[in-house]
Amino acid sequence: MDVVENTLPTDLETVLERPLFCFLGTASPEGSPRVSPLWYLWEDECIWIIADTVEKSYTTRVARHPETAVAVVDFDPGSGRVHHVGMRGTATIEPLDDVRAERLLRRYLGPDRSEWDDRFASLDSDRWGLLRFEPATVVARDQSFSPSL
């Protein structure tokens, strides 16, 4: 992973460990760009995303064109914080790893699995997998501003 630029006031890991959305950029079969907002886990220098291999088209796009991009933005208009991490790399669809998937879901749904939305309480490995995005290049920018509101 080549960090081309990093102007963040904190280390890259700190931003990527926040429970934010990532935006997965893929190409359609016709070559048109597509973006999917998704939950993620930053682990082992990769972005991990729970992947619905039955109902969501981004998994098919990744299988056809593994060259992908991911953006993570932490934006707070009240303070003016804008931390942006943009990555280019490759993605693969991996079998579901229940332990990793649980770590990912706890970030967004909390520690008590009995309180989770039913859609996530028990993932069927015939339907669900993990998308593994390995960044080749990273640009991390502090684009914060002085709020006027």
Score class of each variant (00 low, 15 high):
residue 89 G to A: 09
residue 64 R to T: 03
residue 128 W to G: 06
residue 111 P to N: 15
residue 90 T to V: 11
residue 137 T to C: 06
residue 17 E to V: 01
residue 123 L to R: 09
residue 15 V to T: 07
residue 90 T to E: 13
residue 48 W to L: 02
residue 15 V to W: 00
residue 90 T to G: 11
residue 60 T to Y: 01
residue 111 P to K: 14
residue 40 Y to D: 02
residue 106 R to E: 12
residue 56 K to M: 06
residue 16 L to R: 06
residue 45 E to L: 04
residue 40 Y to W: 02
residue 39 W to T: 10
residue 72 V to R: 00
residue 108 Y to P: 09
residue 63 A to E: 03
residue 124 D to P: 06
residue 92 T to G: 10
residue 13 E to D: 14
residue 143 Q to P: 00
residue 42 W to K: 05
residue 27 A to R: 08
residue 43 E to T: 01
residue 8 L to M: 03
residue 30 E to W: 00
residue 144 S to L: 11
residue 145 F to S: 13
residue 81 R to H: 03
residue 112 D to R: 12
residue 13 E to G: 05
residue 140 A to N: 07
residue 51 A to K: 01
residue 83 H to N: 13
residue 15 V to S: 01
residue 40 Y to T: 08
residue 113 R to P: 08
residue 89 G to W: 01
residue 72 V to T: 04
residue 103 R to D: 12
residue 27 A to T: 11
residue 26 T to Y: 02
residue 30 E to D: 15
residue 79 S to F: 08
residue 137 T to D: 12
residue 73 V to Q: 05
residue 14 T to M: 08
residue 13 E to Y: 02
residue 27 A to M: 11
residue 3 V to G: 09
residue 133 F to I: 11
residue 40 Y to K: 07
residue 58 Y to V: 02
residue 49 I to V: 13
residue 34 R to M: 11
residue 120 F to S: 09
residue 118 D to T: 14
residue 144 S to W: 08
residue 21 F to E: 09
residue 118 D to A: 15
residue 49 I to L: 02
residue 89 G to Q: 04
residue 18 R to C: 03
residue 146 S to A: 15
residue 3 V to L: 04
residue 25 G to E: 10
residue 141 R to C: 10
residue 99 V to P: 00
residue 45 E to C: 10
residue 3 V to S: 09
residue 47 I to M: 07
residue 88 R to N: 14
residue 3 V to Q: 09
residue 121 A to C: 07
residue 13 E to T: 13
residue 41 L to G: 03
residue 46 C to D: 03
residue 146 S to I: 14
residue 39 W to E: 08
residue 83 H to M: 12
residue 34 R to F: 03
residue 83 H to G: 10
residue 32 S to C: 07
residue 88 R to E: 15
residue 66 P to K: 00
residue 64 R to M: 07
residue 27 A to W: 00
residue 61 R to T: 02
residue 35 V to E: 06
residue 15 V to N: 06
residue 75 F to M: 09
residue 143 Q to T: 12
residue 48 W to H: 03
residue 139 V to E: 11
residue 52 D to E: 07
residue 88 R to D: 14
residue 95 P to Q: 13
residue 105 L to M: 15
residue 38 L to Q: 05
residue 71 A to H: 07
residue 14 T to Y: 00
residue 16 L to T: 04
residue 116 W to A: 07
residue 144 S to Y: 09
residue 149 L to G: 15
residue 31 G to L: 11
residue 17 E to N: 15
residue 44 D to C: 01
residue 66 P to C: 02
residue 133 F to K: 05
residue 82 V to Q: 05
residue 31 G to V: 10
residue 133 F to M: 10
residue 123 L to W: 04
residue 143 Q to W: 11
residue 61 R to E: 09
residue 65 H to I: 00
residue 17 E to Q: 15
residue 120 F to G: 04
